[in-house]
Amino acid sequence: MKISEINTLNDIQEYEKSSNLKRDLEKLVSPLKFEVDSSEELLKLIITLKCKWSDLMIGPFVSEQQEYIYYLTKLEGKQRNKALGITDQHYEDKALANKWKKSLAQKVASDKGGCDQAMKVLLSIYEVLVDDDFGDDDE
């Protein structure tokens, strides 16, 4: 078991069967030091580190916000749509498209530490999703 896989007190007990968790954690965060007096405090520390310590994070992004900013500003076409979770239903259901836009807007808005460019791309994608004339060959 890896430290990044610890989510419960039982996981701590399992880890401790084969290794010393405190020692391994100290090596991981060295030269920083920490003091914990119980397994509960150790679990809280691990959960905090999983959110903020890059060696324990899952995936290449430092935050969900940065992940979506990357998708919006660096990817294009089908690859971007797949990463952003856009499906055919988003083109057919304006309410679903609106819900999707609002959810992502909260994550990438510049007033929340996001990026203006990502927000512009998000809004342009949304406009395509709700455009009634999109794909209409009559005009």
Rank of each mutant, 00 (worst) to 15 (best):
C51W: 11
L28C: 03
E26S: 14
K44T: 09
V128F: 15
L28P: 01
K44S: 13
V36D: 06
D136P: 08
K99N: 15
F34I: 12
G135Y: 09
L42Q: 03
I46L: 02
L84F: 08
I86L: 06
F34R: 13
K27S: 02
K27M: 01
Q89K: 14
D24T: 13
Y71H: 01
G113P: 08
C51T: 14
G113C: 15
S4H: 00
G77P: 09
S4Q: 03
Y15F: 12
N81H: 10
Y68T: 00
D55P: 10
E41V: 11
Y126A: 11
P60G: 06
K44C: 07
N10Q: 02
Q13K: 01
C115D: 15
V62H: 09
I46M: 06
I46V: 05
K52E: 11
G85E: 09
D55Y: 05
S124T: 08
L32M: 00
V128L: 15
Y15I: 03
H90Y: 02
M57A: 08
Q66C: 00
Q65M: 15
D132C: 10
I12D: 03
S18R: 08
D11C: 01
V36W: 08
R23I: 14
D93W: 01
D136C: 11
L42Y: 04
S38V: 01
K44Q: 14
N7I: 02
S19F: 11
L104W: 08
S18Q: 11
K78I: 12
V29E: 03
K82S: 06
L9G: 10
S4C: 09
Q66H: 07
D132H: 13
N7T: 02
T73Y: 06
L84I: 10
E76Q: 11
T48Y: 02
S19N: 13
A97S: 11
L49D: 07
Q117P: 00
Y91S: 13
N10W: 04
